[in-house]
Amino acid sequence: MSLPQKTREYRLTKPDGFHNLILTEAPIRKLKSTEVLVKVHAVSLQYRDLIVAKGQYPLGQKENVVPGSDLAGEIVAVGEDVKGWKVGERVCSNFATDHIHGDVTEEIKNTGLGAPIDGVLTEYKILPAHSLVRIPEHLSYEEASTLPCAAVTAYNALLGAVPLKGGDIVLVQGTGGVSIFGLQLAVASGATVIATSSSNKKLEIAKKLGATHVINYKETPDWDKEVLKLTGGRGVDHVIEVGGPGTIIKSVNATRYGGQIHVIGFVAGLADVSQLPVLILSKAVNVRGILIGSRTQFEDMNRLISAVKLKPVVDKVFDFEHLRQAYEHLESQQHVGKVVVKVSKD
């Protein structure tokens, strides 16, 4: 088969909103010897994509960026020095293409797809072979596209530096992508999960996915006290902290002495956190920032996903031409799990 010469891709022409996402055509350059060409089948969207579109991403972004960080696709060409990959294999790329193992560095951070470098909202994507992982066999392209950011982040939090043990108690905030994966991976690993949300309908879904306890934080604003009650005063072992300044004080209150708080997002807005250092100290809590994870963690996670046949929660799938509607749906926060864009027609 002859290789494609061109790709349709989205560019953010001006970073003041996703109405500026324009579908354009670009030539596909020649592969370097260590690269592969991937036909993109599906891309999942993140909260990060919304803030990149507004030019508010705190880690920096390039001008006229191709957005999107999470793809699932198939290899259509391999560079001459590539070992271990062949045409036709189903793959995802790691979020930061150079984060292979170990801790993140400045250089690694600058290889995060869809902000400092061009991302994956394109029909064909050239990637370094070292960034690739195989898709678990039981997953579709749409399901697999949800893994690189949300799932690896949740995995790094719960099974990274201080891995949870069976019988641990995990608190997940909300029902967005990372939180839902945190719930599923925690349950798969033998932990008990407490989930919070402002929507009883969303909490019903959390229960179906295996949450033991659910708390509506609109009805129970002092949800930290409720968590302590549910844990007999002890507190939880791990918190998936996606709220940021608006929730972290309550997260510390809800955590056991010596417990783990994984700081992942800042969706709850700003708040006064001046007492936070003293609270962290007084409970000997470990607070860890999570910048997604490495390719080796992605591979480890896929083994777990394959072993328990875990199915990602896909909220809604949009086609490539209706990307802006996908962004609108994500921004509305009506979704549970992940919003996905189907790029390829076949």
Rank of each mutant, 00 (worst) to 15 (best):
V278C: 11
K30W: 01
E299R: 14
G235H: 06
G176Y: 05
G269K: 03
P312V: 07
Q173V: 08
W85E: 06
Y257N: 15
V278T: 13
E299Q: 15
T111Y: 05
L281C: 10
Q333K: 15
S140Y: 10
D103A: 15
A191N: 12
Q334G: 15
A211D: 03
S93Q: 01
S199R: 10
E321A: 14
H138C: 11
L113G: 03
T296S: 14
I135L: 10
N286K: 14
H138W: 09
G244C: 11
C92M: 13
R90D: 04
K30P: 05
I240E: 03
I292P: 01
L127E: 08
T153S: 12
G337P: 04
A186P: 08
G243H: 11
K14Q: 15
T111V: 04
V78W: 00
T34P: 06
I194G: 06
D272C: 00
A157D: 09
A151G: 13
I264E: 08
K316C: 01
D16R: 06
V314P: 02
Q325M: 12
E331P: 02
T13D: 01
N64S: 00
A191S: 12
V120F: 07
N302D: 02
Y47Q: 12
H41E: 11
S197T: 08
V133Q: 15
C149K: 03
T24E: 12
G269T: 03
A268L: 01
G17S: 09
D315V: 08
L31F: 02
P221R: 10
L310G: 07
T34E: 13
